[in-house]
Amino acid sequence: MLELTCSQAWTPLLEGRIGDWRPRWADGFTARANSTLAIGDPGKPLPDALLAVCDFAHHHAIPPVVQVIQNTSAEDAIAASGWVQYVEHKPAHEVSVLTGPLSHGSSAGAVILDEPTSGWWEMTTGSAEPAEAPRHVLSTGKVGFGVVELDGVTAAAVRGAIVGEWLHIGRLEVRAEFRRRGLARGLMNAASAWAAAQGATGVVLQVAVANSGALKLYENLGCTEHHRYRYWAPGPGACEDRPS
């Protein structure tokens, strides 16, 4: 399952198990690392599994949320259990998972580093000195930190993570004043060349459906949609605030 591959590229501080389901915690940093990936058999009746999601979330002081593949029987069953789409998580409540070939061409000055710079952190997290959770989530695993330096600043950045044969792309950012110069494509080309040297043969991305600009870029690079997922949260009365 490709979604399990993606989850290995985005490591939480803590991951549990509810059967095959994976409750995750990273002190609130990103929905992916602070939700339960509801794929496979939870090993118990669905109402009990959803209560276990609630218990895990309450214990770790995060909202109870499940990440579910869209338009599946699992999503239908969760909706029938009184859970609702977690539209509060804007703009990434609904996400398209894309796959495509490694790209080729000019790197436009982009380089892939073994260690993140303060400029990379600032571009990807908003802080040159991020807290433990973003540091852990973004730097764990076989990760390349892509940057373009222009006019004495980090003009663009990307995170590439290798999971098996896949290059997982995340946190692609270009400063507003440097857009429309081909930097995003250059970062993708540089990350692809780096990933090919690590044995990767394809690229996978998780992109908010609302992010039309990013979707267009990746479409132009040959990526197509593999599936979508959505986040769901308990509706009124669907998640008891039970003591841990």
Rank of each mutant, 00 (worst) to 15 (best):
P91C: 06
P91R: 09
P91I: 06
A92W: 15
A92I: 10
A92H: 14
H93G: 15
H93D: 14
E94K: 14
E94R: 15
E94I: 10
E94L: 13
E94N: 12
E94C: 12
V95H: 01
V95G: 00
V95W: 05
V95Y: 02
S96M: 08
S96W: 00
S96N: 06
S96A: 15
L98K: 04
L98E: 00
L98I: 07
T99W: 06
G100Q: 03
G100H: 02
G100F: 07
G100Y: 01
G100S: 06
G100R: 03
P101A: 01
P101V: 03
P101C: 04
L102N: 01
L102A: 01
L102P: 07
L102E: 06
L102C: 07
L102I: 05
S103E: 11
H104S: 14
H104A: 15
H104V: 13
G105W: 13
G105H: 11
S106R: 14
S106F: 05
S106Q: 14
S106V: 00
S106L: 14
S107I: 13
S107K: 13
S107R: 15
S107P: 12
A108M: 15
A108D: 10
A108L: 09
G109Y: 10
G109H: 10
G109F: 09
G109A: 12
G109Q: 12
A110W: 10
A110S: 11
A110M: 09
A110R: 08
A110N: 11
A110D: 11
A110V: 04
V111S: 10
V111I: 13
V111A: 12
V111D: 08
V111G: 03
V111Q: 13
I112K: 08
I112S: 03
I112R: 04
I112T: 04
L113D: 15
L113R: 15
D114T: 12
D114V: 03
D114E: 15
D114I: 04
E115M: 03
P116S: 02
P116I: 00
P116K: 01
T117Q: 05
T117C: 05
T117I: 07
T117K: 05
T117M: 06
T117L: 03
T117D: 06
T117P: 05
S118Q: 11
S118I: 07
S118N: 05
S118Y: 01
S118M: 11
G119H: 04
G119P: 09
G119R: 06
G119Q: 05
W120Y: 10
W120L: 10
W121S: 04
W121R: 06
W121I: 08
E122K: 11
M123N: 12
M123A: 13
M123S: 12
M123P: 06
T124A: 04
T124S: 07
T124Q: 08
T125P: 09
T125G: 08
T125M: 03
T125R: 04
G126P: 09
G126L: 04
G126M: 08
S127L: 06
A128W: 07
A128K: 14
A128R: 13
E129V: 12
P130Y: 00
P130D: 08
P130T: 08
P130V: 09
P130G: 03
A131G: 14
A131P: 03
A131Y: 02
E132R: 14
E132M: 12
A133E: 08
A133C: 10
P134Q: 13
P134W: 11
R135P: 02
R135Y: 01
V137L: 02
V137F: 01
V137A: 07
L138D: 00
L138W: 09
L138V: 02
L138G: 00
L138R: 00
S139L: 03
